[in-house]
């Protein structure tokens, strides 16, 4: 079953492009410390220098090397997305499966809690907490995850309920399989695609939100991030810094989001039978 998925994905040019992009960004990310000889917080260089051999993208107003800043910013933005995305998806899977498996009061409480959270504009709550407590970035990522689980959790709950009624799960139950065995052996593997889609969509919205929060000035100014660099650079828009200061983080952010979006769309097309049928 999984082999077939891989085969279809390998023939999807959009997915290939997105995966290539993601791979490229990942390589840049991992090789970050070798790619730049400078410390992103080193302020000993001449401010606002043009790009040169020493400073590939020049320096900013504080005399920091922009290339080093860019690498650090990309790393921070991606890790913010990963923390928020993985935590959010994990919560969604746990909540969805638990709600489906223990119907009754637990199900009811979890889903009503989900409704309340769905109704709240999560960015506004994050904003309020960020403005009041100025938490570190990973704390904000966790807050986002706490607010963003109900959407995917509902889908996962519905899918789990459908699976529990399906024939092969019934057969396994009649064979005498314990609930835990059925959960691990039959239900979780089939939820895998939904989990992947949930992770990608959560990472994507977390990266979006981080950019917005940084842009509104809510993130720690000492922490480099793509949104922060853009916001900072825009303060000097009247200087000739577009090519070396503003565009690089902008392009990085766009490529990152583009790759996540395309991957999400391809996967959804693959796993949602209704979309597959209509979008061949």
């Amino acid at each position: 079953m999984h082999i077939q998925y891989v085969k279809i994905l390998r023939r999807d040019p959009w997915f290939l492009f997105a995966a290539l992009l993601a791979g490229l960004l990942l390589v840049i990310l991992l090789a970050g410390s070798w790619l730049s000889p400078h410390d992103p917080f080193d302020i000993s260089f001449t401010p606002l220098e043009r790009p040169s051999k020493e400073h590939w993208l020049g320096t900013n107003d504080g005399g920091m090397d922009i290339w080093a800043e860019l690498l650090a910013g990309l790393r921070n933005t991606v890790s913010f997305g990963l923390v928020a995305g993985l935590a959010g998806a994990a919560l969604a899977i746990i909540a969805g499966v638990v709600a489906a498996c223990r119907n009754g009061l637990t199900d009811h409480v979890l889903m009503r809690l989900g409704d309340i959270l769905l109704a709240l504009p999560s960015i506004m709550v994050t904003l309020l907490l960020a403005a009041l407590f100025r938490p570190p970035a990973w704390g904000l990522a966790c807050i986002l995850a706490l607010l963003a689980w109900p959407g995917p959790a509902k889908t996962i709950r519905a899918q789990t309920l459908a699976l529990q009624g399906s024939l092969h799960v019934q057969a396994a139950r009649h064979m005498g399989g314990s609930p835990l065995y059925i959960l691990i052996r039959h239900i979780l593997p089939e939820l895998f695609p939904l989990g992947v889609i949930a992770i990608i969509s959560r990472i994507r919205s977390a990266v979006f939100m981080e950019a917005s929060l940084a842009f509104l000035g809510l993130l720690d100014p000492m922490r480099k991030s793509l949104g922060k660099m853009i916001q900072h650079g825009l303060g000097y828009y009247y200087l000739d810094i577009w090519g070396n200061w503003l565009l690089p983080p902008l392009i990085c952010l766009c490529l990152l989001l583009l790759s996540l979006t395309l991957m999400g769309v391809s996967l959804e097309k693959l796993f949602d039978p209704r979309m597959r049928e209509t979008n061949q």
């Binding site: 979006f208 917005s212 853009i230 902008l250 952010l253 766009c254 989001l257 583009l258 769309v265």
Partner: peptide, 13 residues
């Protein structure tokens, strides 16, 4: 689909 992946900060700037 491509446009969906471009944040408003990107197109705005």
């Amino acid at each position: 689909t491509i446009l969906e992946g471009i944040p408003e900060i990107g197109s705005g700037v």
